[in-house]
Nucleic acid binder design. Structure first.
Lengths: 342, 342
DNA sequence: CTGTTAGCGCGTTCAA
DNA sequence: TTGAACGCGCTAACAG
């Protein structure tokens, strides 16, 4: 049986209240009493019942994180790193992390949020991969529930978020390809309902327009952020008679898929076809050839998002610029991009 | 402000108890009363306070999962899939999942378990990647705390676990290589403190010995399950004057690293050097060349482990064979393995 | 069928 | 410096 304050109180002959205070580190307990109580508690292996404490404090010291994942085999390292960042930061502030995975924009996902919020299972939630007119954000704002997001979205009120300047990232990637001599550049965009797709697409057009290059409509594909999706999209791009000399993929996984598609057609990636990704997951560096990509410090972002949420929960007043952090992505040039002239 | 049973009671004029019973679906409430109460609760947007319920029921309907991860950039898709499997199964039984990540065999990890167990944060825990003389298992058994593990280990008492027959997996992989004509086969083992390393190594020896082949001591490497580790280990293997014609890697990530190392030396994988992995993560299929590997159904295993734990928690008596499930792995032959004669 | 009473284990008044 | 009493919100045992 678990030992409670009551048990200790009985043993030492003091009241539950005194024991509670002694263990809680209050200074209105006689030094000797405290010593006795602390030692006894130790001996008896006392550990506070957190649930009782939660009920009393009306907090759970827990954060919620609903991972928006498609099929069951969710394996985008992106989420793993984010999870690690969030989890470690949370732990360092003595918060626990409640995790669940649900397909985006489904009733189950909405329900998951409602459970967390309405039943007060957690003190705050982390949101990632924001969508256009994101219902999750709208809901949380409407409920006045504490949260922080990785990614922006259009809503009336500002909200705490961290993001990477994806527009700039793709802009730089495109410029890099143009400078290598590419003119026929295709793009495999992430799903159109995702917020960052907007920015990345804009960055692409901006870079192309700026150099007087036109974007071939047929060379604007869209896929689901998986290797499989990237493979399929790239296959379509490469099937046409006149094909692009370079492909920008919306994330690394799709880029890896695109690489496979190119190689399946006997194309040498980095020579006959250049490919650029986005994220810089660990595998990017170990791809064959190593993938040129736009690096986002996902682990760091996870920590940052979590830190903001924790600070909000601590009641600390935050300045606006501390709430809205935009990271600058970094172009990492490897071997998958090269001159189209060989 | 949140609405509680008390608020509803006040409004409808019944006692808190009656309201509780009406909402709880007990049948000793007048039909009309129930209707009134249910409707009022709905109108007022009532949601039970789970924490209060937990305190009363002495359960949290939550499972704990401590992911043993090395560096911060934990990106083994293995864990993602396992997490998804566990999470989805847990959700389907109305359990929440508390997740944290800690480096294996560290004080922080031990502390994480102690928190979960001693403070009764969760009703049971999931353990993965079991180690030789696993301190976590020993602790949980000693505390009599409900758990289920992915992986076996040596302890006095039997415990609920799911595992894959890694020995058989590596045995089959080795035989596959031998049948292709390989004689000079190297192996990159997982860290020696992991339980499955024992089985996989045994499977390797068994297959080699069975065909009268000797295992070259210098061709037995060990690495940390990352691409980086696999790259380094393979580089050492390939640096020697006489080098193996095939490498079996302890997991897919290391196999991918080994592929890179081989390709960096200009070796054609699948022809000049065959490589076999273990796991069949999604990327294995999309590697270049596609990776021959031993498939473990990780998502399914996650569900299974979780299901066992849930059944234990429900007090359902389990037969021994329901508690100790060993999956048979499946060899998936792709292009990274081929005849050494070209 | 319904209400009263009694906890779950802890923190926090308030009075002594 | 200490303790009694109360409440967090809910469920359960017992009366009526």
């Amino acid at each position: 049986m678990r030992v409670t304050l009551k048990d200790i109180a009985k043993k030492v002959g003091f009241s539950i209240t005194t024991v509670s205070r002694a263990l809680g580190g209050y200074d209105d307990v006689a030094e000797e009493t405290r010593r006795l109580i602390v030692q006894t508690a130790e001996e008896m292996g006392y550990r506070p019942n957190v649930v009782a404490r939660w009920l009393q404090k009306q907090r759970t010291d827990t954060l919620g994180f609903v991972i928006p994942t498609f099929g069951p085999r969710f394996s985008d390292p992106y989420f793993s790193e984010l999870l690690a960042g969030i989890g470690n930061e949370a732990a360092s502030h003595d918060y626990d992390l409640l995790v669940s995975t649900h397909p985006p924009d489904t009733p189950e996902e909405a329900q998951a949020y409602e459970r967390l919020v309405k039943e007060r299972r957690v003190d705050g939630v982390l949101v990632t991969r924001t969508r256009i007119n994101d219902a999750r954000i709208a809901y949380l704002l409407e409920q006045g529930f504490p949260f922080a997001a990785f990614g922006r979205t259009q809503v009336d009120s500002a909200f705490p978020c961290v993001d990477v300047d994806g527009g700039l990232g793709v802009f730089n990637a495109t410029r890099h390809l143009i400078e290598l001599g590419h003119r026929d550049i295709a793009i495999i965009l992430p799903p159109p309902n995702l917020q960052f797709t907007v920015y990345r697409q804009a960055g692409f057009y901006q870079a192309m327009d700026g150099r007087g290059l036109v974007v071939e409509p047929a060379w604007e594909e869209s896929a689901d952020l998986t290797e499989r999706g990237g493979y399929a999209a790239a296959s379509r791009l490469l099937a046409s008679a006149r094909r692009p000399t370079a492909i920008i993929a919306g994330n690394d996984l799709m880029a890896l898929g695109a690489m496979r598609a190119a190689q399946a057609r006997g194309l040498s990636v980095g020579k006959e076809l250049s490919i650029v990704g986005f994220d810089d997951i660990v595998l990017a560096e170990h791809a064959n050839p190593p993938l040129t990509t736009v690096r986002q410090p996902i682990y760091e972002i996870g920590r940052q998002v979590c830190r903001i949420l924790v600070r909000i929960l601590s009641g600390e007043p935050l300045k606006a610029q501390e709430c809205q952090v935009i990271f600058e992505p970094e172009l990492v040039i490897r071997d998958s991009s090269g001159s189209p002239f060989g």
